[in-house]
Design a protein around this nucleic acid. Structure first.
Lengths: 187, 187
DNA sequence: AAAATAGTTGACAGTTGTGTCATTTTGTAT
DNA sequence: ATACAAAATGACACAACTGTCAACTATTTT
């Protein structure tokens, strides 16, 4: 019954992502978004009561995607390398997560919920990395003389290594080599 | 002669930094800043024609500080470790630099100039890191099988490793160990 | 083809930040 | 004490985004 929707979820998320990455949180607002979607600004309000809701919904969607893919990490032969691979595919997610602290967390009950869920997923993500590293430690592969949170921190930080002018596969191989064996030459 | 200034440069930069780190670029505006300074908003306009000018002036100041300190790196015994140390002291600078892409670069001639200078300084910074690594390579200390830009990228990325609940000196030591020798156990 | 209804829209009122400038304040020199 | 000029300010006009809602539109059902 009734009318066909002109706005679909996937296009909305797609343009949301693009707009945030291009303009930052400061330049992200419903006016700009509606223009890109070719839709009246007020239409978006039928689905989201404000931009915080939309952004956190979108981010939750993103985070869910990565955490789901991380389920597979433990089945891989080289889990650490697979992690680096995942990072290369979700670099934009890390960029998005950096704006999280600046989102008004109490604008809506739904926003509060979303942020809670995101924290939980983020924690789950770190747990997964930790469990991979612990497995490595148990097999005598990974060093045990450094605090676990620093190890996890380094793995997560590698996503910031710029890709510029390199093929994805080379980036993965090089970053993996560096994370695994360090800058110094083996002797 | 004439009246004493109520607003001094150092306090202005101090509050600018604090406000940006707390509220992000989206939450940084002259109204909020003037309230923190205990000054009328219009007063700030006597010194800066808009926020882009203020931010880029401030960032330039920051970058200048680091680059200056980096002059000393080459005199150090363990240049790589000194770099990690510098990073730990300037972590907030990296956070600030991330908002650069979202600043309207053409709002003022002064802003354009500032951004040009910042790019030059940023380049200089990377050159310094590169020259340290090249020295290491010439002494047979640093591996040569990986692209220089990836090496530099990793060194810069380490600043993102969170410090949480660790003393600065321990953070430096651990991150240095990881960057130098990697996650894997020596055999 | 008329009724029902989900979906869309433009217009309105409200809020917040911007940039300017004539006026006022305040420290200093005469 | 008075004249002066640098510094600070409040008020004004403006520009941009927000949120709401009554009216309109397109599709399906009967």
């Amino acid at each position: 019954m009734s009318r066909k929707k002109t706005m679909d979820q996937s296009q909305l998320f797609y343009e949301t992502e693009k707009l945030i990455l291009e303009s930052g949180y400061a330049g992200f607002h419903f006016k700009a978004l509606s223009e890109r979607l070719g839709v009246a600004r007020s239409t978006i309000y039928n689905y989201y009561t404000n931009k915080e809701e939309l952004i956190t919904d979108y981010m939750l969607h993103l985070l869910n995607g990565v955490v789901e893919k991380m389920e597979q990490v433990e089945k891989e032969e080289e889990p650490l390398k697979y992690l680096i691979y995942l990072w290369s595919r979700y670099a934009h997610m890390h960029q998005m997560l950096q704006i999280m602290p600046y989102i008004d967390q109490h604008s809506t009950a739904r926003v509060e919920e979303n942020i809670k869920k995101m924290f939980a997923l983020f924690h789950e993500m770190k747990q997964k990395i930790e469990s991979i590293l612990k497995d490595g430690q148990n097999q005598g592969e990974i060093r045990t003389d450094i605090q676990m949170k620093t190890l996890v921190g380094l793995v997560m930080a590698t996503v910031q290594v710029p890709v510029q002018h390199t093929s994805q596969s080379q980036w993965i191989e090089e970053v993996y080599q560096l994370v695994a064996h360090g800058l110094k030459k083996e002797k």
